[in-house]
Design a protein around this nucleic acid. Structure first.
Lengths: 345, 345
DNA sequence: CGAAAATATGTAAGCGCTTACATTTCTCTC
DNA sequence: GAGAGAAATGTAAGCGCTTACATATTTTCG
């Protein structure tokens, strides 16, 4: 047939070419490449030099078809522009590389519909396994993944109630700890700026964490002045302006993440409010931004890199062994910096 | 043979199953999926409903093998943790998605050896085309890519002297413009904190740009106090400390990127120097960090998102058409903010 | 109305690799 | 040094899809 070999496509050497050049069968060449130990040293040298001299490199499609795996792992994150995901994905990719796996990435822009589509795309593109953020998801998607036999690991969430393998931290408890610190120094009027909670279990858990802390101190959780807004500095600032315009503005504003907190901080300055003297602000994540602003942000440190690295290891193990690992819970830590202080009396 | 079908692997429906269910040939099913216009509406509906009811999804390896393309485009960037790359890659991925392509990413950690390895990996993983940063690279790599027939687009660089397709901006000229502004307000003692120039043509071009500006004003380009350091806030700070410890410290410090500049800014504050009264500092890139610090950084805005988006379009076009597009040069713009002022007299 | 042209569908040959199984070639051991 | 067992290599059957080409069906129009 030889279709399309006539045009620009270069005619690359195949396994058979290497086999011919080395005077062995294709099976031996394949073994040299995939399990060298099975092949005698002298044969192996002969084959490898044929590989080198022909400039051979295996055809991906053929290999994937025959071996029924691609050595590719997919990850879908809301957006790379959020430093927490960029950082984790970077570590994830590096670790994957150590295991000889390649990373296929897609982003959902925080939209469940786009995410569902991307999941299908990555599976169709041959991802051997998938990394997803948070448990919240249409059950049909999990059914689809199960049908295709694609292992999934959930990151950024730890919830032993969910049977699915996951790696993350307890958003709720971490936020409850931080909120408790805010209460401990004396704040009673608490505002909260959160990311949109719909379809985002992390955001919901953090809100629940603040309410837990309130409740534990015998305060009314429903008194929390909650403002939800999409992720951005500008939105954080706008939300802060709303909160501060209230008849009795909160003396402390707990933010669902550092980006919103930085926005809040900027707005506070713009409104002529001194942080933390007039109002305390806290973040969550501990990204670079948190240390660069003045005063530096009191926040919760999340081990994003560790999470990315560990996620890669778990996923590689899941692809290989097929066993579902138990949920992993990482520790978070409060970073006390300059934006939390006792309220003015 | 049926190997490995006995174990855990689910037995997924194939094209043939769909064909059987719909009462057509596999060719017709394939056409329904790839060029629906060729198939009669009634047949198509029948096939598509069979696809849906069986939960069929094409096998990636088989498709790649038969079609000789994967619909996957690879990108290798130094690191995702650098916001400029994260931002561009995000836009790149979104645009790729619109064209039905998938993104394979790898990172080089700024190491030419790792990059070379990653290039081979991505090609072996079936990338139809590659996005790389900067022209600087072993010629053997370009030869390899040419042999394999993998189109490459270079981003972050614009140099008409290079024959290769590229999209970027003129690092040298942009930096020269900024440096000229620094000179224009009266600075004569200029320090520069640059990223490591070796194997990084962007960094080299920016240094050259500063020297150009000096020369154009009749000053001695070799008088530039240049400090090279790896990319990080802490390194920027350390470099700033060195510069300020000089017998006659520079009155303006031009930084190769915003991250180094933010480090310099922090160190200035730590040293009790007021910016811009005691010393001016400039950045390059215009990332979020630049607007969050106080005073906000005077820097060069680089249209990272546009670059990412356009890169995706070019690459898709290269894979499809096979024609090498002419180098594209994007415009940069100086953002005057708070860190540049005339030197004290 | 019939032949030519256009359209729709079927047939089947690979794409390049992996791997189960068969065969050959060593390496021991007694 | 013969036979058993281990090790190395070869044989060949797919993996599931795309697409050139063949065939069947419909449309067009002189």
């Amino acid at each position: 047939m030889n279709r399309r070999l006539s045009d620009t496509a270069p005619n690359l050497p195949t396994l058979a070419d290497v086999a011919r050049a080395a005077g062995v069968s294709t099976a031996t060449v394949s073994r040299c490449l995939n399990s060298p130990a099975q092949v005698q040293t002298t044969t192996r040298d002969r084959v490898l030099s044929a590989v080198a001299s022909l400039g051979y490199s295996p055809n991906f499609g053929a290999r994937a078809l025959a071996a029924r795996r691609t050595g590719t792992i997919g990850a879908i994150i809301p957006t790379m522009e959020n430093a927490i995901f960029a950082r984790a994905i970077q570590a994830f990719q590096e670790e994957l590389h150590l295991s000889g796996q390649t990373l296929l990435v897609a982003s959902s822009s925080y939209s469940p519909e786009i995410e569902a589509e991307q999941i299908r795309t990555l599976v169709a593109r041959g991802a051997d396994a998938l990394l997803l953020i948070g448990h919240d998801r249409d059950p049909g998607i999990y059914a689809f993944l199960e049908q295709r036999g694609v292992p999934v690991l959930i990151a950024w969430a730890f919830d032993p109630a969910q049977a699915r393998p996951s790696i993350g931290f307890d958003n709720r408890r971490a936020m409850a700890c931080l909120a408790d610190e805010v209460l401990r120094v004396g704040h009673r009027d608490i505002g909260m700026i959160s990311a949109m909670a719909e379809g985002n279990d992390r955001a919901r858990d953090r809100i629940a964490g603040v309410r837990d802390a309130l409740r534990d101190r015998g305060l009314d959780p429903s008194a929390l002045r909650l403002h939800q807004t999409p992720y951005s500095i500008a939105n954080g600032a706008a939300a802060m302006a709303c909160l501060m315009a209230l008849p009795t503005p909160p003396t402390a504003v707990i933010c669902g993440n550092d980006v919103l907190a930085v926005g809040a901080l900027q707005m506070a300055r713009q409104l002529g409010l001194d942080v933390p003297r007039h109002v305390s602000i806290t973040g969550f994540d501990d990204i670079e931004l948190a240390t660069v602003v003045d005063p530096a942000l009191t926040t919760v440190h999340v081990p994003h890199r560790d999470m990315g690295r560990a996620a890669a290891q778990l996923l590689v193990q899941m692809v290989g062994g097929g066993v579902a690992p138990a949920p992993v819970c990482l520790e978070t830590e409060i970073c006390f910096r300059g934006t939390l202080a006792a309220p003015r009396t």
